[in-house]
Design a protein around this nucleic acid. Structure first.
Length: 215
DNA sequence: AACCAGGAGACAT
DNA sequence: ATGTCTCATGGT
Protein backbone atom coordinates (compact mmCIF):
# COMPACT_ATOMS: atom_id res chain seq x y z
CA UNK A 1 0.00 0.00 0.00
CA UNK A 2 0.87 3.65 -0.18
CA UNK A 3 0.36 4.08 3.52
CA UNK A 4 4.10 3.97 4.30
CA UNK A 5 5.14 6.84 2.03
CA UNK A 6 2.24 8.95 3.29
CA UNK A 7 3.46 8.39 6.82
CA UNK A 8 6.99 9.38 5.82
CA UNK A 9 5.70 12.56 4.21
CA UNK A 10 3.74 13.54 7.29
CA UNK A 11 6.64 12.76 9.62
CA UNK A 12 9.08 14.71 7.46
CA UNK A 13 6.74 17.70 7.35
CA UNK A 14 5.68 17.87 10.99
CA UNK A 15 8.16 15.84 13.02
CA UNK A 16 7.38 13.55 15.99
CA UNK A 17 4.22 14.52 17.90
CA UNK A 18 5.01 12.87 21.26
CA UNK A 19 1.52 11.49 21.80
CA UNK A 20 -0.67 10.94 23.84
CA UNK A 21 -0.81 14.27 25.67
CA UNK A 22 -1.07 12.87 29.20
CA UNK A 23 1.33 12.02 31.98
CA UNK A 24 -0.01 8.64 33.09
CA UNK A 25 -1.96 5.78 31.48
CA UNK A 26 -4.98 6.69 33.56
CA UNK A 27 -4.84 10.30 32.41
CA UNK A 28 -4.71 9.00 28.84
CA UNK A 29 -7.85 6.93 29.44
CA UNK A 30 -9.69 9.89 30.93
CA UNK A 31 -8.63 12.09 28.04
CA UNK A 32 -9.81 9.47 25.54
CA UNK A 33 -13.33 9.62 26.99
CA UNK A 34 -13.42 13.38 27.41
CA UNK A 35 -12.26 14.15 23.87
CA UNK A 36 -15.21 12.35 22.29
CA UNK A 37 -16.52 14.82 19.70
CA UNK A 38 -14.84 17.61 21.65
CA UNK A 39 -11.94 20.00 21.08
CA UNK A 40 -8.84 19.00 23.02
CA UNK A 41 -8.41 22.49 24.47
CA UNK A 42 -11.69 21.96 26.32
CA UNK A 43 -10.54 18.57 27.57
CA UNK A 44 -7.41 20.15 29.03
CA UNK A 45 -9.52 22.48 31.17
CA UNK A 46 -11.53 19.56 32.54
CA UNK A 47 -8.43 17.49 33.30
CA UNK A 48 -6.88 20.50 34.97
CA UNK A 49 -9.95 20.71 37.21
CA UNK A 50 -9.51 17.05 38.17
CA UNK A 51 -5.84 17.55 38.95
CA UNK A 52 -6.50 20.69 40.96
CA UNK A 53 -9.02 18.75 43.05
CA UNK A 54 -6.51 15.90 43.36
CA UNK A 55 -9.15 13.64 41.86
CA UNK A 56 -7.30 12.12 38.92
CA UNK A 57 -7.47 8.50 40.03
CA UNK A 58 -10.12 5.76 39.70
CA UNK A 59 -10.68 5.74 43.46
CA UNK A 60 -11.09 9.50 43.74
CA UNK A 61 -13.43 9.77 40.75
CA UNK A 62 -15.69 7.10 42.23
CA UNK A 63 -15.59 8.62 45.71
CA UNK A 64 -17.27 11.92 44.81
CA UNK A 65 -20.94 12.48 43.85
CA UNK A 66 -21.63 12.40 40.09
CA UNK A 67 -22.84 15.97 40.30
CA UNK A 68 -19.44 17.05 41.63
CA UNK A 69 -17.64 15.10 38.94
CA UNK A 70 -19.87 16.60 36.26
CA UNK A 71 -19.05 20.08 37.54
CA UNK A 72 -15.32 19.44 37.10
CA UNK A 73 -16.01 18.11 33.60
CA UNK A 74 -18.17 21.05 32.54
CA UNK A 75 -15.60 22.69 30.20
CA UNK A 76 -15.28 19.52 28.12
CA UNK A 77 -18.96 19.47 27.20
CA UNK A 78 -21.51 16.64 27.53
CA UNK A 79 -20.50 16.77 31.17
CA UNK A 80 -23.41 14.74 32.55
CA UNK A 81 -22.88 11.99 30.03
CA UNK A 82 -19.12 11.98 30.45
CA UNK A 83 -19.35 11.90 34.24
CA UNK A 84 -21.25 8.61 33.98
CA UNK A 85 -18.85 7.32 31.33
CA UNK A 86 -15.81 8.02 33.49
CA UNK A 87 -17.47 6.28 36.40
CA UNK A 88 -18.17 3.15 34.40
CA UNK A 89 -14.56 3.19 33.16
CA UNK A 90 -13.22 3.56 36.72
CA UNK A 91 -15.52 0.85 38.08
CA UNK A 92 -14.25 -1.52 35.42
CA UNK A 93 -10.63 -0.56 36.13
CA UNK A 94 -10.92 -1.31 39.84
CA UNK A 95 -12.76 -4.56 39.18
CA UNK A 96 -9.97 -5.50 36.79
CA UNK A 97 -7.41 -4.94 39.53
CA UNK A 98 -6.16 -1.50 38.54
CA UNK A 99 -4.34 -0.06 35.57
CA UNK A 100 -1.19 -2.13 36.14
CA UNK A 101 -3.14 -5.38 35.99
CA UNK A 102 -4.17 -4.67 32.39
CA UNK A 103 -0.67 -5.63 31.22
CA UNK A 104 -1.47 -9.31 31.81
CA UNK A 105 -4.44 -9.44 29.47
CA UNK A 106 -4.27 -10.28 25.82
CA UNK A 107 -5.07 -7.44 23.43
CA UNK A 108 -8.22 -8.91 21.87
CA UNK A 109 -9.61 -9.91 25.23
CA UNK A 110 -8.83 -6.47 26.59
CA UNK A 111 -10.50 -4.83 23.62
CA UNK A 112 -13.72 -6.78 24.13
CA UNK A 113 -13.77 -5.78 27.78
CA UNK A 114 -13.25 -2.12 26.94
CA UNK A 115 -16.06 -2.20 24.37
CA UNK A 116 -18.38 -3.65 27.01
CA UNK A 117 -17.96 -0.49 29.10
CA UNK A 118 -20.84 1.95 28.63
CA UNK A 119 -19.38 5.02 26.96
CA UNK A 120 -16.39 3.28 25.39
CA UNK A 121 -16.86 2.75 21.65
CA UNK A 122 -14.36 1.47 19.08
CA UNK A 123 -12.29 4.64 18.80
CA UNK A 124 -12.06 5.29 22.53
CA UNK A 125 -11.17 1.64 23.11
CA UNK A 126 -8.38 1.82 20.55
CA UNK A 127 -7.07 5.12 21.96
CA UNK A 128 -6.78 3.37 25.31
CA UNK A 129 -5.25 0.21 23.85
CA UNK A 130 -2.63 2.09 21.82
CA UNK A 131 -1.78 5.07 23.97
CA UNK A 132 -2.38 3.77 27.50
CA UNK A 133 -1.64 0.05 27.06
CA UNK A 134 0.84 0.25 24.16
CA UNK A 135 -0.93 -2.37 22.07
CA UNK A 136 -0.50 -2.47 18.27
CA UNK A 137 -3.91 -1.21 17.13
CA UNK A 138 -4.47 1.45 14.48
CA UNK A 139 -6.93 4.11 15.62
CA UNK A 140 -9.59 5.17 13.12
CA UNK A 141 -11.23 8.56 13.65
CA UNK A 142 -13.12 11.14 11.62
CA UNK A 143 -9.84 12.73 10.48
CA UNK A 144 -8.54 9.40 9.21
CA UNK A 145 -11.72 8.86 7.20
CA UNK A 146 -11.61 12.37 5.78
CA UNK A 147 -7.94 12.48 4.82
CA UNK A 148 -7.70 9.03 3.28
CA UNK A 149 -11.00 9.28 1.43
CA UNK A 150 -9.78 12.54 -0.11
CA UNK A 151 -6.63 10.75 -1.15
CA UNK A 152 -8.88 8.23 -2.89
CA UNK A 153 -7.61 5.31 -0.81
CA UNK A 154 -10.87 4.53 1.02
CA UNK A 155 -14.53 5.43 0.66
CA UNK A 156 -14.68 6.89 4.14
CA UNK A 157 -17.98 5.37 5.29
CA UNK A 158 -16.71 1.83 5.84
CA UNK A 159 -17.42 0.23 9.20
CA UNK A 160 -14.83 0.92 11.87
CA UNK A 161 -13.49 -2.64 12.03
CA UNK A 162 -13.13 -2.81 8.25
CA UNK A 163 -10.88 0.26 8.19
CA UNK A 164 -8.87 -0.80 11.21
CA UNK A 165 -8.22 -4.23 9.70
CA UNK A 166 -7.28 -2.57 6.41
CA UNK A 167 -4.72 -0.21 7.93
CA UNK A 168 -3.25 -2.85 10.21
CA UNK A 169 -2.91 -5.35 7.39
CA UNK A 170 -1.20 -2.78 5.18
CA UNK A 171 1.25 -1.65 7.86
CA UNK A 172 1.80 -4.91 9.74
CA UNK A 173 0.39 -6.17 12.99
CA UNK A 174 3.35 -6.95 15.22
CA UNK A 175 4.03 -5.39 18.59
CA UNK A 176 6.99 -3.65 16.97
CA UNK A 177 4.49 -1.40 15.20
CA UNK A 178 3.29 0.31 18.36
CA UNK A 179 5.56 3.36 17.81
CA UNK A 180 4.46 3.56 14.18
CA UNK A 181 0.74 3.43 14.98
CA UNK A 182 1.28 5.92 17.79
CA UNK A 183 3.02 8.44 15.58
CA UNK A 184 0.84 7.87 12.51
CA UNK A 185 -2.44 8.65 14.24
CA UNK A 186 -0.91 11.66 15.98
CA UNK A 187 0.34 12.98 12.63
CA UNK A 188 -3.08 12.44 11.04
CA UNK A 189 -4.71 14.54 13.74
CA UNK A 190 -2.07 17.26 13.52
CA UNK A 191 -2.29 17.35 9.74
CA UNK A 192 -6.08 17.50 9.77
CA UNK A 193 -6.00 20.40 12.18
CA UNK A 194 -3.43 22.37 10.21
CA UNK A 195 -4.47 21.70 6.60
CA UNK A 196 -7.46 20.45 4.67
CA UNK A 197 -10.17 21.71 6.97
CA UNK A 198 -12.36 22.76 4.06
CA UNK A 199 -10.41 22.24 0.86
CA UNK A 200 -9.35 18.83 -0.41
CA UNK A 201 -5.87 20.09 -1.24
CA UNK A 202 -4.26 23.21 0.16
CA UNK A 203 -1.18 25.06 -0.99
CA UNK A 204 1.86 23.65 0.75
CA UNK A 205 0.12 20.42 1.72
CA UNK A 206 2.79 17.79 2.52
CA UNK A 207 0.56 15.16 0.90
CA UNK A 208 0.41 16.98 -2.43
CA UNK A 209 2.42 14.25 -4.14
CA UNK A 210 -0.01 11.58 -2.95
CA UNK A 211 -3.01 13.71 -3.92
CA UNK A 212 -1.87 14.38 -7.47
CA UNK A 213 -4.25 13.07 -10.07
CA UNK A 214 -6.80 11.87 -7.58
CA UNK A 215 -8.58 15.05 -6.54
C1' DA B 1 -24.16 33.69 14.28
C1' DA B 2 -23.82 29.33 12.51
C1' DC B 3 -20.61 25.75 12.62
C1' DC B 4 -17.37 22.57 14.36
C1' DA B 5 -14.60 19.57 17.56
C1' DG B 6 -9.50 13.44 18.12
C1' DG B 7 -17.92 9.74 19.53
C1' DA B 8 -21.23 6.90 21.62
C1' DG B 9 -25.80 5.28 23.04
C1' DA B 10 -30.78 4.99 22.61
C1' DC B 11 -34.23 4.34 19.65
C1' DA B 12 -37.07 3.75 15.43
C1' DT B 13 -37.21 1.83 10.96
C1' DA C 1 -28.32 -3.49 9.49
C1' DT C 2 -28.99 1.51 8.69
C1' DG C 3 -30.68 6.42 9.89
C1' DT C 4 -31.80 10.04 13.45
C1' DC C 5 -31.64 12.36 17.79
C1' DT C 6 -29.28 13.79 21.94
C1' DC C 7 -25.58 15.15 24.75
C1' DA C 8 -22.86 20.82 25.66
C1' DT C 9 -18.77 23.66 25.98
C1' DG C 10 -15.51 27.02 23.85
C1' DG C 11 -13.17 28.72 19.63
C1' DT C 12 -13.59 30.60 14.77
Amino acid sequence: MTLRPIYQQLLAAYGPQHWWPGETPFEVMVGAVLTQNTAWSNVERAIHNLKRADALSPEALLAVPVTQLAEWLRPSGYFNVKAERLRSLCAWLLAAGGVRALAQRETHHLRRELLAIKGVGPETADDILLYACERPVFVIDAYTRRIFSRLGLIEGDEHYEVLRAHFEAALGRGHRNVPLFNEYHALIVFHAKSHCRKRPLCAGCPLAASCRGRI
